[in-house]
Design a protein around this nucleic acid. Sequence first.
DNA 1: ACGCCAGAAGTTTTT
DNA 2: CTTCTGGCGT
Length: 716
Amino acid sequence: MRAEQLLEDLTKPQREAVTHGDGPLLVLAGAGSGKTRVIARRAAYLAVTAVPARQVLAITFTNKAADEMRQRIVALGVGGGMTIATFHSFCARLLRQYAERVGVTANYSIFDQSDRVRAIKKAIGQCELASEDWKPSQVEGRISHAKNHMQSPEDLAGESVDFADKTVGRIYAEYEQILAANNALDFDDLLVRMAVLLEQDKELRAQLEDRFRYVLIDEYQDTNRAQYLIARRLTEQRRNICATGDPDQSIYGWRGADLSNILEFEADYPDAKVVRLERNYRSTQRILSAAGELIQSNILRKDKTLWTDNPQGSPVQVMTCDDEQDEARQITERIARLRRQGRPLREVAIFYRVNAMTRVLEDALRAGGLPYQMARGVEFYNRKEIKDVLAYLRVMVNPADEIALVRIINTPARGIGKTTVERLGSYARQHDLPLMDVVRQTETLKQLGPASGRVATFGQLLDRLGKLVELKSVRDIVEKALDLTGLERAVLEREGRDSEQARNLAELVSGASEYDVEHLDGSGSLVDWLAMVSLVNDIDKLDENLGAVSLMTLHAAKGLEFDVVFIAGLEEGLLPHVRSRDSQAEMEEERRLCFVGMTRARKSLTLSHALYRSFRGSVLRTVRSPFLDELPSGQVDWVDYSEQGGSRRSARTRLPRWPIGQLMYHPEYGLGRLIRLDRVGGRPLVRVQFNLYGEKSFTADESELKPVELDGDTDP
DNA sequence: ACGCCAGAAGTTTTT
DNA sequence: CTTCTGGCGT
């Protein structure tokens, strides 16, 4: 495509961003302002006017974003040879190439979160700490946090006076040793090591700068310290960095994203050209002004006003419901009505703050006969059947990977239990041998007792698997491994041919097959594919062609758009979440999260809150979210479906006439005495002191609570 | 070595 | 309320 054609249908600011030549460029792109389109055009434009496509590097955060960008650029007819990757996959690839400079070999393993927890558990044990006091998953979080901020174990142990931090520092140091022994890097390392490598290795930096003349970084507001440093160091000489993002959509602060990276871009690069894309092409005026008004309450932000020429649209609605069931029901009814009016369900989404809220929504949708699909974040990465296969392949590629080895040694079950694994482990430690070697020499280890034969068989399996590595086709390797290991058989026997697990395995094979086809020139390898699948998983993506309502967390909603959007649970403690209560910065992040959700909507937006919500078993009175009060009253319709609101007053509001002190029976909690009976917000609330379980609250009409007649039948 | 039951714990998740 | 873990029993 010619350069002029790339500019034809662009607005003036969009065109400025696309045609900007050399030097730093910041594109502040508001929600729905056509950002992806602009970056794709810019990448294409550079490839047409400035340099060969292969000298352009575009970095995104998610695979989905990378895929979308690749598609768009290819559609423009200039994508050949351009590097479009996520931060993680880009770094993983380079680290493989320069492995020896970071102390691993090219076949290194990539540890995901669960591998990390296992390794940290081991580290805690080696530090002779009790895992009751130091919970692996919590320590994992702290170590990840430290890595995200480029802190070494020494930094953590040295800088802090806090005993807990010092201990975490010790575990961290031990964990790093385990990683090294396993020839492994974790997700965070991919970024951290790359940042360090770029700092230390001037020659490599120059080499890469020569290779990538223009660097485009998407979602810059979500970069953490390491990503920021990588971006800077990759563009040190030529300074052809193009950062795009929106400070108002930064929602990953708790994962180490540093909002100041984008806010201070102009301080970092005083000569930066700044382009603001403030025209929204997505939403109605009312949706946009409601969202805009909300975000104005944030103090730490770059002022920006989104505007649109779209129709005014119908008002944003706020629904007040009785409880979460009622809320789910109201949403379902509305969606059912939309469907009758001919709105395709794929254009409808429900967002919520926490995954725990899905259950009631699912129940209501099912009851209403509405098909739905859920986007579940990390769930996919933890699919057992996939991880099992990958663990075998990891061991084949990297025999030092003991985390993977321990995972597969008894998967599928082959009679090698905990005790045997422990014995193998302590033997390895005593003789300072890799676990792999101990497993393979087991004929000499008669002391294993009855398990020795089974370990020997496992060793032979590993031998046979090892030969597969020579095969050219990744598909063949995966298929043969599935067969030899018995994993496929186990899944088919246990779950059946049509089970989700079986389908996932088939999906993995077809993924390998696709990879083969894409690498017919011989450039592919098992190592490479393995790295790719541990970083890229698009099996779980939402299917747009499916006629179903989409359910997802507000975090997962970023980057998507729907005609009709519902956001449930606008309540104090939920949105904003309790965790953010004490910090202004976190509170602002919650507001941005709400803003992100609202700006996903094209035509219709409904926010809801419930007056009561069950939480861990008991019903609690809620307080509506302060965000609701920050919306412009003129643009918003408040609809009160609650009994308190008077629109549906019923017998349910009647207060039972039991005396205080009445003996009560509950099938779950047993006997107790009524200690309070009152009306909270128009709804009868019963409080009972149970003999064994303490105080609990119930709504009189819905609970299974019954008064006990002293001379009557006490059985429920 | 495996399965079951009791007890404890429990926010958000791009990779 | 749920989900997961770890301990105990077979």
